[in-house]
């Protein structure tokens, strides 16, 4: 499934890029995420998803497979790939998040950046096999919280 979230932050593209392109800043925004090790652009960690009756802990690894900032600061793009599995063997998750930064309109107090996060998420296993497609709802919810947090980082 592909999930898209868009928002605008009150900072220029370069500042936004710098803020987002660190593993830690990404991780601390993802609900329930904990980074256990970082090696350059690669990391390992866990994500605890707790929503209503469901509580799952995914362990996994990820890395920035792309990080590009235009020299003139006119655009930025980063791709984060991650995969993990539920520690009870009930599900697998694979995600590729493409973050695209573009200059937004200037606000009164300075430049802004439009951010688009497109996440291609694959949830497999038992988790995805039950319940009226709730996985999609839950995933959308988690990513929404993630992007909300990113948005607030620079607000």
């Amino acid at each position: 499934m592909e999930l898209t979230h868009e928002f605008t932050v009150p900072a220029d593209v370069a500042t936004t890029f710098a803020a987002f392109s660190r593993v830690e800043s990404m991780a601390e925004c993802f609900p329930g995420a904990e980074v256990t090790s970082v090696d350059g652009d690669a990391f390992t960690g866990s994500v605890k998803i707790k929503l209503g009756p469901i509580a799952l802990t995914f362990n996994g690894e990820g890395e920035f497979t792309e990080k590009e900032l235009a020299a003139d600061g006119s655009s930025g793009r980063m791709v984060l790939s991650a995969k993990g599995k539920d520690r009870r063997g009930n599900g697998t998750a694979g995600a590729e998040a493409v973050v695209v930064l573009a200059p937004g309109g200037d606000a009164a107090d300075g430049p802004t950046t439009d951010v688009e996060v497109t996440t291609d998420l694959q949830i497999g296993g038992k988790v995805a096999s039950m319940g009226r497609g709730l996985v999609q709802e839950v995933s959308d919810k988690m990513l929404g919280r993630f992007t909300d947090c990113l948005e607030k980082k620079l607000t």
């Binding site: 949830i123 497999g124 296993g125 995805a128 096999s129 039950m130 319940g131 009226r132 497609g133």
Partner: peptide, 14 residues
């Protein structure tokens, strides 16, 4: 099935 090959109708509720 979804586009990754996961059976979505995996219980008698679905």
């Amino acid at each position: 099935y979804d586009d990754a090959g996961t059976l979505l109708t995996g219980t008698l509720a679905d």
